[in-house]
Nucleic acid binder design. Structure first.
Lengths: 306, 306
DNA sequence: GATGCTTACGATACCCGTAAAGATA
DNA sequence: TATCTTTACGGGTATCGTAAGCATC
């Protein structure tokens, strides 16, 4: 048994039992992959993979148990490397952040800037993806720290911390009907209503992104069926279409900048949609470089100021 | 990094940093051991061992952290092998029990006999040692299941279950003064006293064995200073000297057999000494063969009948 | 001087990748 | 037929053990 065999087992599972792909991902030949699997099975005296003829289809019962242990071992192998770097290059190394667009664009920049000042030699990698992809990157060890509002809390094998809480904001082009309506209501001391918003075509995030779930929920509770004419991955795209007059936008409040978004107006609607909690996630059992812990500390510290 | 290097790290620590001994224990050359350590240190870019000239003296800070992870990884490696055996040879394999003399001689035989009937192909290894040695064997992976009355409960990294509870018994040669004294007391409805026992020279277990601690405690609480003229590791030895008339014996009640120990008499003293709890221990994180779990089940089941 | 660690070196075994053959969809 | 896996084989490398050289006690 050697580490290459363990890596191959793990990668084969991750690649849905396609040995060719696993070989490519490990930068080796697939004949080697095939042989290593066979060797390990021979050594252990157990079939690890379900086969149909020559094709691998899945794991056998012992294979599943083994895969779990292998994951742990390779995590520990990575931990050893991290540990070594920790001591050999105190403030040097890599830190990979996996984040959604919203966090990357509107929340993390100031934190990252602070971090760079304190750890100028640390190379930062910013991976952008969906909450699911972020969870996957953390679990596979590709990323050290993950940021997302959705999903993260429910994934097994991840540890999450609360990062910051925020509300959605409604944005409209300057002079839009809804803006006037809101102003009137405001004068008479009344708040904006969901019904008023729902009377316009809406533009907001994709399902599974940036609190889309809490938007759905608010309308549903109010017995309204919003007309979402366009959904997008990020606020920049949403703002562009709002500027074009395609509809009323609902974005994370952090995404609106009064100084830059001169053609847009923000309407307060923190009373209409439930608050969203963005979370920081790390893989359970993953030995973090000390500057990773520091980054997290910066985040929780900055959270009070957001 | 490979497994041989990890094994070498672990064994070097266990052998108090004597590379020659570590090499012997791993059935390899010490030049190889030396090189492997150097290679790993080079690869990680960290010194793992404190050195004074050419001699290794101990672990550095990173070395200590690494050693912990290495222990985990090698435990998992062993778990993989156990797992494979589990499936490839359902009811075959080895089971190593580490036990004190008392348990090996008076408690386990019937359980072992039962076990053999159910798993005739499992090879049993019975290692005898002090509670400390038993703990060590469990932690190092030499033994699968440990049995002892002392120590086990307090060791980090071990999981313990209660096995059975028992009392000490006082044994004397037939016709001994204490026997008559006890008989008299019994007629008048009174129990034997500690003071009566303490008036004779005593023979019992070594410190740290088979409930010796609870014997000490009982006398101390009663304000008595027992005259222990001889201490031994096991009840057989104690009984031999009691038969010779050297003193009054205090042994585990299981050790007295009225049918065999014809020259001895047992005096009840369960009211005099606190009960002792013998424990079953296993290493935390050690994947047991299913028949090991079965052995433990037999034990707890038998415990009600002891 | 005895013990213990390191370095050098040659034999061996292992691992990898190419290429061909066989299986599967 | 195209994709994928297995088997066979040759080249390269890493590992191991012997032996010699040094440091430590």
């Amino acid at each position: 048994m050697n580490f290459q065999q363990l890596r191959i087992i793990r990668e084969t599972v991750r690649c849905n039992f396609n040995l060719t792909e696993a070989a490519n991902r490990l930068f080796t030949s697939q004949s080697g992959v095939s042989k290593h699997i066979k060797d390990l099975e021979d050594e252990l005296g157990v079939e690890l993979f379900e086969r149909k003829g020559k094709r691998l289809l899945g794991l056998t019962a012992p294979g599943r148990e083994l895969a779990k242990i292998v994951e742990r071992m390779l995590l520990d192998a990575q931990n050893i490397k991290n540990l070594a770097e920790q001591y050999s290059q105190q403030d040097q190394g890599h830190l990979t952040l996996a984040t959604t667009h919203t966090q990357a664009r509107y929340v993390l920049p100031t934190i990252v800037a602070q971090f760079r000042l304190q750890f100028p030699k640390v190379k930062l990698h910013l991976h952008q993806g969906s909450p699911q992809e972020i969870a996957q990157m953390l679990l596979s060890g590709e990323a050290d720290i993950g940021f997302a509002t959705e999903t993260l809390g429910t994934i097994d094998g991840l540890l999450t911390y609360p990062f910051h809480s925020w509300h959605h904001a409604v944005i409209v082009p300057a002079g839009h009907g809804l803006e006037k309506q809101a102003a009137k209501l405001h004068k008479s001391g009344k708040p904006l209503t969901l019904a008023a918003i729902a009377s316009y075509p809406l533009i907001t995030y994709h399902a599974g992104f940036t609190g889309r779930a809490s938007i759905e929920q608010a309308f549903k509770t109010a017995g309204l069926t919003p007309d979402i004419v366009l959904s997008a991955l990020d606020a920049d795209v949403i703002k562009s279409y709002v500027e074009l007059g395609m509809g009323v936008g609902i974005v994370a409040e952090m995404a609106f900048n009064a100084e830059r978004d001169l053609n847009l107006r923000r309407l307060d609607c923190s009373h209409l949609f439930p608050a969203n909690l963005t979370k920081i996630a790390v893989r359970e059992g993953h030995l973090q470089r000390h500057f990773a812990d520091h980054f997290i500390a910066l985040c929780t510290q900055a959270a009070s100021g957001i």
